[in-house]
Structure formats: C-alpha cells, structure tokens
Design a protein around this nucleic acid. Sequence first.
DNA 1: CCTGGCACTCACACGGCACGAGTGCCAGAA
DNA 2: TTCTGGCACTCGTGCCGTGTGAGTGCCAGG
Lengths: 338, 338
Amino acid sequence: MLSERRLEVLRAIVQDYVGTEEPVGSKALTERHRLGVSPATVRNDMAALEDEGFIAQPHTSAGRIPTDKGYRLFVDKLAGVKPLSSPERRAIQNFLDGAVDLDDVVGRTVRLLAQLTRQVAVVQYPSLTRSTVRHVELLPLATARVMLVLITDTGRVEQRMIDCPAPVTEDSLADLRARLNSRVVGRRFADVPQLVQDLPESFEQEDRGTVSIVLSTLLETLVEETEERLMIGGTANLTRFVHDFPLTIRPVLEALEEQVVLLKLLGEAKDSGMTVRIGHENAHEGLNATSVVAVGYGSGDEAVAKLGVVGPTRMDYPGTMGAVRAVARYVGQILAES
Amino acid sequence: MLSERRLEVLRAIVQDYVGTEEPVGSKALTERHRLGVSPATVRNDMAALEDEGFIAQPHTSAGRIPTDKGYRLFVDKLAGVKPLSSPERRAIQNFLDGAVDLDDVVGRTVRLLAQLTRQVAVVQYPSLTRSTVRHVELLPLATARVMLVLITDTGRVEQRMIDCPAPVTEDSLADLRARLNSRVVGRRFADVPQLVQDLPESFEQEDRGTVSIVLSTLLETLVEETEERLMIGGTANLTRFVHDFPLTIRPVLEALEEQVVLLKLLGEAKDSGMTVRIGHENAHEGLNATSVVAVGYGSGDEAVAKLGVVGPTRMDYPGTMGAVRAVARYVGQILAES
DNA sequence: CCTGGCACTCACACGGCACGAGTGCCAGAA
DNA sequence: TTCTGGCACTCGTGCCGTGTGAGTGCCAGG
C-alpha cells in the first residue's frame, strides 16, 4: 500500500504535469508544493511510484509523467469534482435558456461544453428507446402516396414517404389515422408492434394492403429512430495539442467522424454517475491517447442520453468533470421544462 | 502576354508541385516534362513568371511554387475538369441510391465527397427560398395546444408548438387546415404571406386569435427555414497537411465550425457553374491558405443549394472539380426522383 | 526513515562545416 | 531574336562534436 505522502506526491505530479505539459522533476516538486520533505526523499517516493506503474520517465534523466494507471488512481482517490464558479453557472443557464427547439438545445450544449472545457464535446440526442409516441399523422400527397409523420414526446419529428399498392381515399386515411393514434399515443416505442398487430384485420379487404405498408413503415421508423444520433463540436481545440502528438490527432478526428464509434464510446459509460475512461481503457485504438469524461442526462431522474468530452489523457480532470456534470444538469432542467 | 511555352511551364510547375508537395526547380521540370528546351531556358521563363507574380520562391536557392495568382491562371486557362472514371461514377450512384430520406442524402453526399476528394466536404441542405409548400398539418395535442407541421417539396419537415389563446375544437382546426392548404399548397414560400393575409377575417370572432397565431407561427417558420443549414465531413483529411501548416489548421477548423462562415462562403459562389476561390480570394482570414471549390445543385435546372470542398490551395483542381461536379449532378438526380 | 552529497546519464541547443539543389547572368551558337 | 551551356553564387539542410543543465540513483550519516 502506498503511504499518504506518496499519494500526495502523485497528486502533485499530476497537477504540475497538467499545468506545465512538461515532465516534472523532484526539485521542481518540492519548490512548488509544501511537501515538507527534501527532493531526495521525493526521489525515493517517485522511484516507488514508478515501480508500481503509476508514473514513467520519457527517457533517463528526465522528469516523470503520470501513466494511465496514475491518472486512474488520481481520478478515483485523489481528485474531487471541481464545482463551477457561480458566474459560470449563470452563463450556462443564460446560454441554454435561449434555445428554441431540440436541435437548438443540443447544438448550444455542444458549443457550451466545448467552450467550458476547451476540448471536444459530444452530445447524444435524447434517446427514443424509452420515449413515447405523441402523435402519428398521415397525409395524402397524391392518390396513392402518403406521408407518415411521427411525433415523439421528446419533441422529435420524423417523416417517411409511402407508396401505397392502391389508391386511398381521404376518409379511409382519416379512419386509419384515428384508430392508429388511439392505440399508440402515449405508448412506448417498444410496445407499439404488439399494439398494432391485429389492426389490418379490422379493415376492409381493399384497404389492408395500404394499412399494412403504413404499419410496417411506422415500425421501421421506430426502430431506426431508436438508433441514436449525436452532435460534436470543438474539434478546433484538438490543435492545442498539435505539438504534443501531431500524428495522434488524425485517428482522433477519424474516430470523431464515425458516429458508431462515438455512440459505442458513450454507450460504454455507466448509466448513472460520471464515467471517466483513460487512455487505453478506451476500446477504440485511435483514442488510446485520449480520455473520455461522460455522464447521462435526462429530464427526470432517468437518463435519456449521454454527453461528455474527449481530450488528451493529460487533462484537468476535476475541472472537466465539474463542467460536464453541471452542463448535464442544466440540460436536464431545460428538457424537463419543455 | 505570356508565350505559349511559359504557360506550359506554369502548368508543369503546378502539376509537379501538387504531386510532390515540394518546390520545383528548372532541372526537375525538363526531366519530368517534354518541354523541348533546356533548363536554362526554363529558368528564364520562370524568372518572367515570377516577375508577373504567378510563382514565387520560398527562399533563394529553392525551387518555385505557384502563387494564388498562378493557381488562378492555371484554373482559368490551363486546367480542364477531369471527368471521373466510370467505376467511380457507378460507385457514386450506388452509394447515393441507398439513401432513405433527405438527411441521409445529405449525409451520404458529404461522406462521398470527402472520400472522393480526400478533402473537407461541405453540403448545404436544399434551400427553401425557392421551394414550395407541399402540405401544412395542424395537430391538436391538448385543448389549447397545437402542433404545426410544415412539409416542403424538397422533403423537409419542420414542426412548431403553438399555445392557443383559447381552446380549439377538432372541427375548427380541420376547417383551418383545409382552407390554409387550399391557399398555400404548391406555392412558393415568398408568396405565402400575401396569400394568407385575409384568412383570419373569414373566421368566427372566437377563433380569430388562434388563426392569427397559427399564421404568424407559419410565417415565422418559413423565414427561419429560409436560413440554410449545412453538413460537413472529412475533417480528418486536414491532417494530411499537418506537416505543411500545423499552425494553419486551427483557424480552418474554427472556420468550419462556424456555420455562418461556411454559409457565406458557399453563398459567395456563383449561382450557376462551378466557382473556385483560391487562397486570399476567400474573404475569411482563416481560410487564406485554402481553396474552395463549390457548385450549385438542384432537382431541376434551378440550383436549390450548393456543395463543395475546402482544401489547401495546393490541390488537384481538375480532379476536385470533376468530383464536385459529378456529385452535384447525381445528388440533383436523386432529389428529382424523390 | 529522512537528508545532503556526489557521480552519472542524456536530451537539447549551439556552432561550424560540407553538400547540393537551385538560381542569375553572360557569352556564344542557332 | 531566342536558345543553350557554363560558371559563380546563395542558402537551406543534414551532420558532427561539444557543452550545459536538469534530473536521477545511490550511499553514508543524522
């Protein structure tokens, strides 16, 4: 087990390295922190920390830098979550309050998070797996062409074109619309298939073709919409580290463009509480030099989606975690209000 | 006026520089191109081209690189548009044919363009300024709450919540919907305000409040939707030039995140035909080291939006222009079909 | 268990140097 | 008039040797 002082040394190393971006040596440590011991003692502690794998030297005769394992210990045991200042909190609230619709909320959130953390922000759209149907609309566009519009309780709207096998009358469409809505409005997506299963049978023979194609399109849309979307921002912040890892930046940009990768990344985060994945803890290779701080958010107590930031492993964890948590909270409030 | 051969020399310089990414000297030129003259002669030509400002030396005793002015001449007079190979054309068609809705079309287009040109792709959503109303739907959500859904002929759907001053019945709403649609369906956005101006008067006193708030929301939506949206992709391709201008990459990323900047950028492009803006021809400072190749696209002969790529001034103009033109054409076809 | 001292390592910055690609100019040939 | 070969010159780049300093590990003594 590591002694109290050694943990203190590790904390000091992490803090200094995050600040200066340079390997930190024993002398500098004793000067910048009141450790109460001499550089020689610190050296011994550092040697021990290195044996345990918490810190490493880039090369002999250089200072130490924390390893992924070191950051892990720092995050778990040594660092708290740094709360935002109240001007910052006010700024968040003001900025988010101006949003007019869901797209705008997500867009503003992503910009806000990128600006606060000076890193790349990722915000998942509120998930539809747990959401419910608010309304289904059927619009006749031509004699045998119908548009299906699905409106969810999270304010999202999706539309699909449908080519019907036979001409449909305005009346029969209104009939279908009414019956369909009476069954599915207020229900969860997952329950819809069951609820509409026997619907075609109650229609005249001639309309059944249309009814079933409408239903299958609806179910398809529900499934597709369960697949999540997300928005990212602040990629320009990556250039802050271009001198560090000019070559590492490419796989990160590539990973960020792959929605699938990002969704998996957020999906790996715990459903409740904040998740920090450091360096190689990330499954995706391109992100082995980055850390991901993610947290769920939602209008109620249930998380409907996740948001977070992606940055270099050498990041200000307490500050980043504070910003992520605060933003998640405010977004939840905004969603609850609308 | 520049002689034929000097133009040929400029063309050779541009081609070699684009290929090798290194300043090109007189000797290398005569070796790689059949100019039929000696290096000394080429040197004289180069001196003349430099006097005219078409090429420059990064420093004494180095080869020449084209200036913005040189690229401009190259694009205007020396370079054609390189048509794509037929496998490439097939690949484009196959890839775009799989799209399910407008978002998907734009998303696929952006990925396609980024991949073909290996640069950053920008695609504007089909504009609504010239588009027409396909349908307006009004859905009662609660006694005094209505959702307005606007469907355009480009397949776009927008929705707005409306809180009515008084409870509305299903019947009066259906009435409003019918009368509204009979006036605006098939009409251009710009004409809508006039067409609905006198609509409130024809309703009962008690419904007028609702009617006018619905109308004003509709008009508001039309205006908002006239403001364009866009999608970008392929930012990872920027890292291909990181050794060239590691510092220049940041303002580019920043500019790319500013939708406003990009929209202005595309807006500056001519409405018909392809536009190439080279280096300092771009108004935005951050893009002074990049060129923009943009072209309008649309379902008919009229351009409804623009798309293009952003890359370093040293780019393969004929190839890029070919790809941009081809993609625009196919997207136009896809839009016309749906 | 802590501390001061000491020898050792090694990245990095600096200066000198040779190399070579590339240029401009000029006199003579076509 | 235009092209060509020759020649001197420039200057960025890579290489090498050297000195410096930050940082380390180890050890003997408090």
